[in-house]
Amino acid sequence: MKKLTFLFFIVTSGLTNAQQTKVEQFSTALDSVRIQLKIPGMAVAIKQGNIVLLQKGYGFTDLEKHIPATAQTTFRVASVTKTFTSTLLMQLVEQGKLKLDDPVQKYGVNLNNPNITIKHLLTHTSEEIPGSHFQYNGYGLLGPILEKVSGLPFYRLLSENILIPLKMTSSAPSITPEQVCEYSSANPSVLPFFTTTFNLLAKPYELTSSGEIKRIEYLNEFGAFGGLATSVADLLKYSDAIDRHQFISKAGQKLVFTPNRTDTGFITPYGLGWFVESYKGKDYYWHYGQTNGESALFIKVPSLKLTLAVLCNTDKLSQPFPLGDGDLMMSPVGTLFYHFLLRKQTS
Protein backbone atom coordinates (compact mmCIF):
# COMPACT_ATOMS: atom_id res chain seq x y z
CA MET A 1 0.00 0.00 0.00
CA LYS A 2 2.84 2.41 0.79
CA LYS A 3 4.26 1.87 -2.66
CA LEU A 4 0.97 2.67 -4.37
CA THR A 5 0.42 5.77 -2.23
CA PHE A 6 3.92 7.03 -2.99
CA LEU A 7 3.43 6.53 -6.72
CA PHE A 8 0.14 8.40 -6.62
CA PHE A 9 1.77 11.29 -4.76
CA ILE A 10 4.62 11.52 -7.25
CA VAL A 11 2.44 11.65 -10.33
CA THR A 12 0.13 14.32 -8.92
CA SER A 13 2.80 16.51 -7.31
CA GLY A 14 2.90 18.97 -10.24
CA LEU A 15 -0.78 19.92 -9.93
CA THR A 16 -2.62 22.74 -8.22
CA ASN A 17 -4.79 21.79 -5.24
CA ALA A 18 -7.93 22.15 -7.34
CA GLN A 19 -6.54 19.94 -10.13
CA GLN A 20 -5.36 17.33 -7.68
CA THR A 21 -8.80 17.26 -6.07
CA LYS A 22 -10.45 16.66 -9.45
CA VAL A 23 -7.98 13.89 -10.27
CA GLU A 24 -8.56 12.20 -6.92
CA GLN A 25 -12.33 12.49 -7.35
CA PHE A 26 -12.07 10.93 -10.79
CA SER A 27 -9.91 8.13 -9.38
CA THR A 28 -12.42 7.38 -6.62
CA ALA A 29 -15.35 7.45 -9.05
CA LEU A 30 -13.49 5.20 -11.50
CA ASP A 31 -12.91 2.61 -8.81
CA SER A 32 -16.61 2.79 -7.91
CA VAL A 33 -17.48 2.01 -11.54
CA ARG A 34 -15.04 -0.89 -11.47
CA ILE A 35 -16.71 -2.32 -8.39
CA GLN A 36 -20.20 -1.78 -9.79
CA LEU A 37 -19.30 -3.57 -13.01
CA LYS A 38 -17.57 -6.38 -11.05
CA ILE A 39 -14.26 -5.83 -12.82
CA PRO A 40 -11.53 -7.60 -10.81
CA GLY A 41 -8.58 -5.49 -11.90
CA MET A 42 -8.05 -2.15 -13.62
CA ALA A 43 -5.26 0.30 -14.39
CA VAL A 44 -5.50 3.95 -15.41
CA ALA A 45 -3.16 6.65 -16.66
CA ILE A 46 -3.91 10.28 -17.45
CA LYS A 47 -1.43 12.72 -18.92
CA GLN A 48 -1.78 16.38 -19.83
CA GLY A 49 1.08 17.93 -21.73
CA ASN A 50 4.22 16.75 -19.97
CA ILE A 51 2.52 16.03 -16.64
CA VAL A 52 1.23 12.59 -15.67
CA LEU A 53 -1.88 13.39 -13.64
CA LEU A 54 -2.64 9.85 -12.56
CA GLN A 55 -1.12 6.40 -12.94
CA LYS A 56 -2.65 3.76 -10.71
CA GLY A 57 -4.04 0.23 -10.37
CA TYR A 58 -7.26 -0.90 -8.69
CA GLY A 59 -8.49 -4.29 -7.56
CA PHE A 60 -6.71 -7.50 -8.44
CA THR A 61 -4.81 -8.80 -11.43
CA ASP A 62 -5.23 -12.32 -10.01
CA LEU A 63 -8.16 -12.95 -7.67
CA GLU A 64 -7.07 -16.45 -6.69
CA LYS A 65 -3.61 -15.35 -5.60
CA HIS A 66 -4.78 -11.91 -4.37
CA ILE A 67 -2.22 -10.11 -6.53
CA PRO A 68 -3.14 -6.41 -6.67
CA ALA A 69 -3.34 -4.57 -9.97
CA THR A 70 -0.83 -1.74 -10.29
CA ALA A 71 0.12 0.85 -12.87
CA GLN A 72 2.67 -1.68 -14.14
CA THR A 73 0.13 -4.47 -14.73
CA THR A 74 -0.24 -5.37 -18.39
CA PHE A 75 -3.57 -6.06 -20.07
CA ARG A 76 -4.68 -7.16 -23.49
CA VAL A 77 -6.43 -4.25 -25.20
CA ALA A 78 -8.49 -5.91 -27.96
CA SER A 79 -9.50 -3.37 -30.63
CA VAL A 80 -7.29 -0.56 -29.35
CA THR A 81 -4.79 -2.53 -31.44
CA LYS A 82 -6.59 -1.12 -34.49
CA THR A 83 -5.05 2.29 -33.86
CA PHE A 84 -1.61 0.69 -34.20
CA THR A 85 -2.71 -1.01 -37.42
CA SER A 86 -3.78 2.39 -38.75
CA THR A 87 -0.39 3.90 -37.87
CA LEU A 88 1.47 1.08 -39.63
CA LEU A 89 -0.74 1.27 -42.70
CA MET A 90 -0.39 5.05 -42.99
CA GLN A 91 3.39 4.68 -42.76
CA LEU A 92 3.28 2.47 -45.85
CA VAL A 93 0.98 4.96 -47.59
CA GLU A 94 3.43 7.79 -46.94
CA GLN A 95 6.27 5.60 -48.15
CA GLY A 96 4.38 5.14 -51.42
CA LYS A 97 4.07 1.37 -50.96
CA LEU A 98 0.27 1.31 -51.13
CA LYS A 99 -2.69 3.64 -51.62
CA LEU A 100 -5.85 3.92 -49.59
CA ASP A 101 -7.92 3.61 -52.75
CA ASP A 102 -6.19 0.41 -53.86
CA PRO A 103 -8.63 -2.48 -54.24
CA VAL A 104 -7.90 -5.15 -51.65
CA GLN A 105 -7.84 -7.86 -54.32
CA LYS A 106 -4.62 -6.26 -55.60
CA TYR A 107 -3.01 -7.72 -52.48
CA GLY A 108 -4.56 -11.15 -52.74
CA VAL A 109 -7.63 -10.51 -50.57
CA ASN A 110 -10.70 -11.80 -52.35
CA LEU A 111 -14.02 -10.54 -50.95
CA ASN A 112 -16.03 -11.29 -54.08
CA ASN A 113 -16.31 -7.59 -54.76
CA PRO A 114 -13.58 -5.86 -56.79
CA ASN A 115 -14.73 -2.43 -55.55
CA ILE A 116 -13.71 -2.94 -51.91
CA THR A 117 -10.65 -0.81 -51.14
CA ILE A 118 -8.17 -0.60 -48.28
CA LYS A 119 -9.90 2.59 -47.14
CA HIS A 120 -13.23 0.76 -46.94
CA LEU A 121 -11.70 -1.73 -44.51
CA LEU A 122 -9.93 1.00 -42.57
CA THR A 123 -13.11 3.07 -42.16
CA HIS A 124 -15.56 0.21 -41.53
CA THR A 125 -17.47 0.92 -44.74
CA SER A 126 -16.82 -2.35 -46.59
CA GLU A 127 -20.16 -4.03 -45.87
CA GLU A 128 -22.92 -4.46 -48.47
CA ILE A 129 -22.34 -1.66 -51.01
CA PRO A 130 -18.75 -0.52 -50.29
CA GLY A 131 -18.57 3.08 -49.09
CA SER A 132 -22.32 3.35 -48.55
CA HIS A 133 -22.54 3.19 -44.76
CA PHE A 134 -20.58 2.74 -41.53
CA GLN A 135 -20.80 -0.64 -39.83
CA TYR A 136 -18.20 -1.41 -37.19
CA ASN A 137 -16.56 -4.71 -38.07
CA GLY A 138 -13.24 -6.56 -38.00
CA TYR A 139 -9.92 -5.28 -39.28
CA GLY A 140 -8.39 -8.70 -39.69
CA LEU A 141 -7.99 -8.51 -43.48
CA LEU A 142 -5.69 -5.50 -43.20
CA GLY A 143 -3.08 -7.76 -41.60
CA PRO A 144 -2.38 -9.90 -44.69
CA ILE A 145 -2.25 -6.74 -46.81
CA LEU A 146 0.34 -5.16 -44.54
CA GLU A 147 2.32 -8.39 -44.51
CA LYS A 148 2.29 -8.66 -48.29
CA VAL A 149 3.43 -5.06 -48.77
CA SER A 150 6.07 -5.02 -46.01
CA GLY A 151 7.31 -8.58 -46.38
CA LEU A 152 7.11 -9.03 -42.60
CA PRO A 153 4.68 -10.87 -40.31
CA PHE A 154 2.29 -8.39 -38.71
CA TYR A 155 3.70 -9.02 -35.24
CA ARG A 156 7.19 -8.07 -36.45
CA LEU A 157 5.90 -4.98 -38.23
CA LEU A 158 4.18 -3.84 -35.04
CA SER A 159 7.14 -4.63 -32.80
CA GLU A 160 9.88 -3.19 -35.00
CA ASN A 161 8.07 -0.09 -36.23
CA ILE A 162 6.34 1.02 -33.02
CA LEU A 163 6.97 -0.96 -29.83
CA ILE A 164 10.77 -1.17 -30.01
CA PRO A 165 11.43 2.41 -31.22
CA LEU A 166 9.23 3.77 -28.41
CA LYS A 167 10.80 1.45 -25.81
CA MET A 168 7.34 0.14 -24.98
CA THR A 169 8.99 -2.58 -22.92
CA SER A 170 5.72 -3.69 -21.29
CA SER A 171 4.05 -4.27 -24.67
CA ALA A 172 4.04 -7.27 -26.98
CA PRO A 173 1.80 -9.00 -29.52
CA SER A 174 -0.07 -12.02 -28.13
CA ILE A 175 1.50 -14.54 -30.48
CA THR A 176 2.08 -18.23 -29.81
CA PRO A 177 5.03 -19.44 -27.70
CA GLU A 178 6.45 -21.04 -30.83
CA GLN A 179 6.37 -17.70 -32.66
CA VAL A 180 7.98 -15.94 -29.68
CA CYS A 181 10.75 -18.55 -29.61
CA GLU A 182 11.38 -18.25 -33.34
CA TYR A 183 11.31 -14.45 -33.28
CA SER A 184 13.55 -14.07 -30.22
CA SER A 185 16.02 -16.63 -31.54
CA ALA A 186 16.51 -14.49 -34.64
CA ASN A 187 16.35 -11.21 -32.69
CA PRO A 188 17.26 -11.71 -28.99
CA SER A 189 16.61 -8.04 -28.15
CA VAL A 190 12.85 -8.59 -28.42
CA LEU A 191 12.71 -11.29 -25.74
CA PRO A 192 12.54 -8.85 -22.76
CA PHE A 193 9.46 -7.22 -24.31
CA PHE A 194 7.63 -10.56 -24.28
CA THR A 195 9.00 -11.64 -20.90
CA THR A 196 8.04 -8.43 -19.11
CA THR A 197 4.65 -8.13 -20.79
CA PHE A 198 3.44 -11.64 -20.15
CA ASN A 199 4.93 -11.97 -16.66
CA LEU A 200 2.86 -8.94 -15.64
CA LEU A 201 -0.26 -9.85 -17.64
CA ALA A 202 -3.56 -9.73 -15.74
CA LYS A 203 -5.55 -12.95 -15.51
CA PRO A 204 -8.80 -12.81 -17.53
CA TYR A 205 -12.26 -13.13 -16.02
CA GLU A 206 -15.92 -13.05 -17.02
CA LEU A 207 -19.26 -12.68 -15.29
CA THR A 208 -21.50 -15.75 -15.29
CA SER A 209 -25.23 -15.47 -15.92
CA SER A 210 -25.71 -15.46 -12.15
CA GLY A 211 -23.30 -12.53 -11.76
CA GLU A 212 -20.38 -14.51 -10.37
CA ILE A 213 -16.81 -13.67 -11.40
CA LYS A 214 -15.25 -16.64 -13.20
CA ARG A 215 -11.65 -17.17 -14.31
CA ILE A 216 -11.35 -17.88 -18.05
CA GLU A 217 -8.62 -18.07 -20.68
CA TYR A 218 -7.75 -15.44 -23.25
CA LEU A 219 -8.77 -16.12 -26.82
CA ASN A 220 -5.84 -17.48 -28.80
CA GLU A 221 -5.74 -14.72 -31.37
CA PHE A 222 -3.64 -11.84 -32.60
CA GLY A 223 -3.89 -9.72 -35.72
CA ALA A 224 -4.57 -6.31 -37.16
CA PHE A 225 -7.93 -6.37 -35.34
CA GLY A 226 -6.62 -6.97 -31.80
CA GLY A 227 -4.41 -8.94 -29.46
CA LEU A 228 -1.81 -6.41 -28.32
CA ALA A 229 -0.88 -6.62 -24.64
CA THR A 230 0.37 -3.42 -23.05
CA SER A 231 0.33 -1.17 -19.99
CA VAL A 232 -1.23 2.22 -19.40
CA ALA A 233 2.22 3.82 -19.19
CA ASP A 234 3.20 2.40 -22.56
CA LEU A 235 0.00 3.71 -24.12
CA LEU A 236 1.04 7.18 -22.92
CA LYS A 237 4.34 6.71 -24.79
CA TYR A 238 2.39 5.81 -27.92
CA SER A 239 0.10 8.82 -27.49
CA ASP A 240 3.10 11.15 -27.13
CA ALA A 241 4.64 9.73 -30.31
CA ILE A 242 1.42 10.43 -32.19
CA ASP A 243 1.46 14.03 -30.99
CA ARG A 244 5.03 14.61 -32.13
CA HIS A 245 4.33 12.91 -35.50
CA GLN A 246 7.07 10.35 -34.97
CA PHE A 247 5.54 7.75 -37.28
CA ILE A 248 3.43 9.63 -39.80
CA SER A 249 3.38 13.23 -40.93
CA LYS A 250 1.22 15.97 -39.47
CA ALA A 251 -0.91 15.94 -42.62
CA GLY A 252 -1.22 12.16 -42.48
CA GLN A 253 -2.25 12.25 -38.81
CA LYS A 254 -4.83 14.92 -39.59
CA LEU A 255 -6.31 12.61 -42.21
CA VAL A 256 -6.42 9.77 -39.66
CA PHE A 257 -8.37 11.99 -37.26
CA THR A 258 -10.81 13.30 -39.89
CA PRO A 259 -14.29 11.72 -39.82
CA ASN A 260 -14.91 9.63 -42.91
CA ARG A 261 -17.78 10.40 -45.24
CA THR A 262 -19.86 7.81 -47.03
CA ASP A 263 -20.34 8.05 -50.79
CA THR A 264 -23.53 10.01 -50.16
CA GLY A 265 -21.74 12.54 -47.92
CA PHE A 266 -22.90 11.20 -44.56
CA ILE A 267 -20.31 11.89 -41.85
CA THR A 268 -19.46 8.72 -39.93
CA PRO A 269 -18.10 8.56 -36.35
CA TYR A 270 -14.86 6.99 -37.54
CA GLY A 271 -11.70 8.23 -39.20
CA LEU A 272 -8.84 6.00 -40.30
CA GLY A 273 -8.58 3.60 -37.37
CA TRP A 274 -9.96 5.90 -34.65
CA PHE A 275 -13.38 7.04 -33.52
CA VAL A 276 -13.63 10.79 -34.05
CA GLU A 277 -16.20 12.75 -32.10
CA SER A 278 -16.99 16.35 -31.20
CA TYR A 279 -18.66 16.99 -27.84
CA LYS A 280 -19.28 20.33 -26.14
CA GLY A 281 -16.93 22.08 -28.54
CA LYS A 282 -14.00 19.69 -28.13
CA ASP A 283 -12.73 16.97 -30.46
CA TYR A 284 -12.15 13.51 -29.03
CA TYR A 285 -10.07 10.85 -30.76
CA TRP A 286 -10.62 7.51 -29.11
CA HIS A 287 -10.96 3.77 -29.35
CA TYR A 288 -12.36 1.07 -27.17
CA GLY A 289 -11.47 -2.60 -26.92
CA GLN A 290 -13.68 -5.52 -25.99
CA THR A 291 -13.40 -9.27 -26.12
CA ASN A 292 -13.44 -12.18 -23.66
CA GLY A 293 -11.55 -11.25 -20.51
CA GLU A 294 -10.32 -7.88 -21.72
CA SER A 295 -11.53 -4.36 -22.41
CA ALA A 296 -9.97 -0.95 -22.75
CA LEU A 297 -10.64 2.73 -23.39
CA PHE A 298 -8.05 5.04 -24.94
CA ILE A 299 -8.94 8.74 -25.38
CA LYS A 300 -7.08 11.77 -26.73
CA VAL A 301 -8.36 15.34 -26.38
CA PRO A 302 -5.89 17.21 -28.60
CA SER A 303 -6.91 20.77 -27.77
CA LEU A 304 -6.08 20.13 -24.11
CA LYS A 305 -3.11 17.83 -24.80
CA LEU A 306 -4.93 15.31 -22.63
CA THR A 307 -4.78 11.51 -22.84
CA LEU A 308 -6.62 8.82 -20.86
CA ALA A 309 -5.93 5.07 -20.88
CA VAL A 310 -8.04 2.63 -18.86
CA LEU A 311 -7.47 -1.14 -19.08
CA CYS A 312 -9.12 -4.05 -17.29
CA ASN A 313 -9.41 -7.84 -17.17
CA THR A 314 -13.05 -8.47 -18.07
CA ASP A 315 -15.04 -7.25 -21.07
CA LYS A 316 -17.31 -5.14 -18.85
CA LEU A 317 -15.56 -1.82 -19.38
CA SER A 318 -17.04 -1.92 -22.88
CA GLN A 319 -19.42 -4.85 -23.30
CA PRO A 320 -22.61 -3.39 -21.80
CA PHE A 321 -22.30 -0.14 -23.74
CA PRO A 322 -22.87 0.42 -27.51
CA LEU A 323 -19.54 2.13 -28.11
CA GLY A 324 -19.36 0.76 -31.64
CA ASP A 325 -21.95 3.39 -32.56
CA GLY A 326 -19.32 6.05 -31.93
CA ASP A 327 -20.68 7.86 -28.85
CA LEU A 328 -18.01 8.07 -26.16
CA MET A 329 -20.49 9.38 -23.62
CA MET A 330 -22.24 6.00 -23.63
CA SER A 331 -19.25 4.84 -21.57
CA PRO A 332 -19.44 5.56 -17.82
CA VAL A 333 -15.68 6.12 -17.88
CA GLY A 334 -16.05 8.57 -20.76
CA THR A 335 -18.67 10.54 -18.84
CA LEU A 336 -16.57 10.55 -15.66
CA PHE A 337 -13.58 11.78 -17.64
CA TYR A 338 -15.64 14.63 -19.04
CA HIS A 339 -17.31 15.47 -15.73
CA PHE A 340 -14.17 15.64 -13.59
CA LEU A 341 -11.44 16.67 -16.02
CA LEU A 342 -13.06 18.45 -18.95
CA ARG A 343 -16.34 20.09 -18.05
CA LYS A 344 -14.95 23.28 -16.52
CA GLN A 345 -12.41 23.65 -19.33
CA THR A 346 -15.09 23.31 -22.04
CA SER A 347 -17.72 25.56 -20.49
Rank of each mutant, 00 (worst) to 15 (best):
E160Q: 14
S171W: 00
L304A: 05
I116R: 03
T335A: 03
Y107A: 10
G143R: 06
R156A: 13
L342P: 02
N292D: 13
P173S: 00
E212Y: 06
G289Q: 10
I118W: 11
D283C: 02
D31M: 06
M42R: 13
T314W: 01
S27V: 03
L308R: 06
T197E: 01
N313F: 00
P259G: 02
A29N: 07
Y136H: 06
L207G: 04
S278L: 03
D101E: 05
V77N: 05
I242V: 10
H124R: 11
V33L: 10
E64R: 10
L122I: 01
P204T: 09
H66Y: 03
T291A: 14
T176A: 01
A45G: 07
T176K: 01
T268K: 04
H124W: 03
T169F: 05
F275D: 09
F275P: 00
L306D: 07
T176N: 00
S295L: 04
T258Q: 05
Q135C: 08
L15M: 13
F337M: 09
Q36F: 09
Y139A: 10
G293Y: 14
R34Y: 15
E160D: 15
N220R: 08
K97P: 06
T87A: 14
L272A: 01
D240K: 15
P320F: 02
F266S: 12
Q345M: 06
Q253W: 08
E206V: 13
E206H: 04
M90K: 11
Q36Y: 07
A251F: 01
T85W: 14
G57R: 14
P144W: 02
T16L: 07
H120K: 08
T117R: 07
K56D: 14
A18R: 10
K106N: 13
S231A: 01
L342I: 01
T291I: 07
G289K: 12
N17W: 01
I213N: 02
H66V: 11
F154G: 07
T264I: 12
L100F: 03
E178P: 01
F84H: 10
D240H: 11
I299L: 10
F198V: 14
I129N: 06
Q179M: 10
S171M: 00
